[in-house]
Design a protein around this nucleic acid. Structure first.
Length: 500
RNA sequence: GGCGAGUUGGCGGAGUGGUUACGCAGCGGAUUGCAAAUCCGUGUACGCGGGUUCGAAUCCCGCACUCGCCUCCA
């Protein structure tokens, strides 16, 4: 059995991972609030924990891992978005707008994350489907003296949980000292947080012992993880920005409501995403969604590759350059890997991943497998990282296109030879573009056979400006063959035809 | 202000108390009419200052800088 080491935020140490039940390894990851397209930052935990999911399935067996990731479909941001839509002329009731908004956003999320090659979790609970469990949990907290009702709100009393602040390494007193938070007057302690709050008549809400209202943000994860994974489970993941307050609050709620359990034994947090060295933010104009990138023609697999090129606990920088490098690498791997079956996962790749998900080291090893011709091992190992090389080799951007035709016969040393001209590129190439390129190669080769190097070099240079690289290769019999390598499939055949 | 993470070669990015990361770029060679592609080879590193040690980029202390959270943003 492979031994996994994971960095546990809870203890701030690397720890050997041993599941509570090897027959059912349980992981919970905080999912999105569904009111808008997922941005690049949302995608990082999805990809990171997808690798962990795949690794766990590899080690413990596909049917022995339960991965839960929630959809937060009740939230003030969603309400705010619905009100915006109303202000823009949508006359429907708010709850109706919200239902459509959240349904649509969930569909988008699935589309976009599927494109990144992320497996769907085993369970994707929506918060609104677990309101009774949340109410039960809040009631339990009130009954145990860990929560109190005030002005229609139910608040968690942080002073009732001595370990509050332990996960994020803060003390309640320190946080209050440095806090810039506006404190509601009904709070007993400034750090107390909302479990339940009143809803306006037109807002989403449910009847509860504390009146018509809706849950606070944190309680959903505690309620759903308990319902689906139990009072103690193996791994809880999410972005580092969630460590406080979200995860801290989850710990407090869950441990107080279910003192019989340990809640999550391992906490894993991924670092943030940056863009071209700067924090991604709307004000800097470098904020974009996964869909934006996909629409720009950047394949999901490329996004995934760039993500995994940085260890999950370090800030990851998204740059155009890295995306291009990733694409070139995947093209090479896919072109090489497609011809062979999957073999066994390379031990060094497995070792790298087992060492706190060292995906950059795993990728480095994949490069070595590629370079040394270990095709079947490359295929299987890449798949463990979520790259299906055979599927990728069928994608337009990674499918090698080659067309070859006979050129004019050549007489040499009393023998007749049959040279060829060919065109190469990635993706589907139109017949028109293919023919114009083959014609170009023929003209270039004619100059070369005439030994008119000035004309040949000029033509090659002009073709280069259009994104066509002309190459000559010499076959065993000493006769040159011509080839055109295309940078893109969108070159104007007319322009190519006009080159002489 | 409080808490936490980090600073590796031209760029990206792992790792380690003493031995090649890896990729891209570069350089040299083979090859080529010249190129390209390919193949072979190859250099450059560990923020600053102390300390521990036979030996530290790797451990400890201090400093500088960067970043994150503390504002229901992953």
């Amino acid at each position: 059995m492979v031994e996994l080491t994971l960095h546990n935020t809870r203890t701030r140490r690397d720890e050997r991972f041993a599941p509570l039940d090897p027959g059912d390894v349980r992981m919970y990851v905080c999912g999105p609030t569904v009111y808008d397209r997922a941005h690049l930052g949302n995608a990082r935990p999805v990809v990171v924990f997808d690798v962990l999911y795949r690794l766990l399935r590899h080690v413990y067996g596909e049917s022995h891992v339960t991965y839960v990731r929630n959809f937060t479909d009740v939230d003030d941001k969603i309400n705010a978005r619905a009100r915006e839509l109303q202000a823009d002329g949508d006359t429907r009731a708010m709850v109706e707008i919200i239902r459509e908004l959240t349904d649509e956003t969930v569909r988008w999320y699935h589309e976009d994350m599927d494109a990144l090659g992320a497996l769907r979790p085993d369970r994707e609970p929506r918060a609104t489907e677990y309101i009774p469990q949340m109410i039960a949990m809040i009631s339990e907290l009130v009954a145990r003296g860990c929560a109190y009702e005030a002005e229609g709100h139910v608040l968690f009393d942080v002073r009732s949980f001595p370990d509050y602040g332990r996960l994020s390494g803060r003390s309640v007193d320190d946080m209050i000292a440095g806090a810039r938070v506006e404190v509601a007057p009904y709070k007993r302690d400034p750090m107390d947080f909302v479990l339940w709050k009143p809803s306006a008549a037109d807002e989403p809400g449910w009847d509860s012992p504390w009146g018509f209202g809706r849950p606070g943000w944190h309680i959903e994860c505690s309620a759903m993880s308990h319902e689906l994974l139990g009072a103690t489970f193996d791994i809880h993941g999410g972005g580092i920005d969630l460590q406080f307050p979200h995860h801290e609050n989850e710990v407090a709620q869950s441990c107080c409501a279910h003192p019989e359990g340990d809640f999550a034994r391992f906490w894993l947090h991924n670092e943030m995403v940056q863009v071209e060295g700067r924090k991604m933010s709307k004000s800097l104009g470098n904020f974009f969604t996964v869909r934006d990138l996909l629409d720009q023609g950047i394949p999901g697999e490329v996004i995934r590759f760039v993500m995994l090129g940085t260890h999950y606990r370090k800030p990851m920088d998204w740059t155009e350059k890295r995306a291009q490098e990733a694409k070139a690498t995947l093209q090479r791997w896919a072109d090489f890997g497609e011809a062979g079956p999957d073999g066994d996962v390379d031990p060094e790749v497995l070792e790298a991943l087992s060492d706190d998900l060292n995906t950059p080291a795993a990728i480095a090893r994949l490069n070595e497998l590629f370079k040394t011709g270990k095709r079947t091992s490359l295929n299987a190992s890449a798949r463990l990282l979520g790259f299906d090389l055979k599927a990728i080799s069928d994608r337009d951007w990674a499918k090698r296109y080659v067309a070859t035709e006979d050129d004019d016969p050549v007489s040499k040393d009393g023998h007749n030879f049959q040279p060829t001209v060919s065109v190469m590129g990635w993706g589907e190439i139109s017949d028109e573009l293919r023919d114009s390129c083959l014609g170009l190669v023929r003209r270039w080769m004619a100059h070369r056979r005439a030994r008119d190097w000035a004309q040949a070099d000029r033509l090659r240079s002009e073709a280069g400006e259009l994104g066509i690289e002309l190459r000559a290769t010499k076959s065993a019999n000493g006769v040159s063959q011509g080839m055109a390598q295309l940078e893109s499939t969108h070159i104007d055949p007319e322009k190519i035809g006009s080159l002489r």
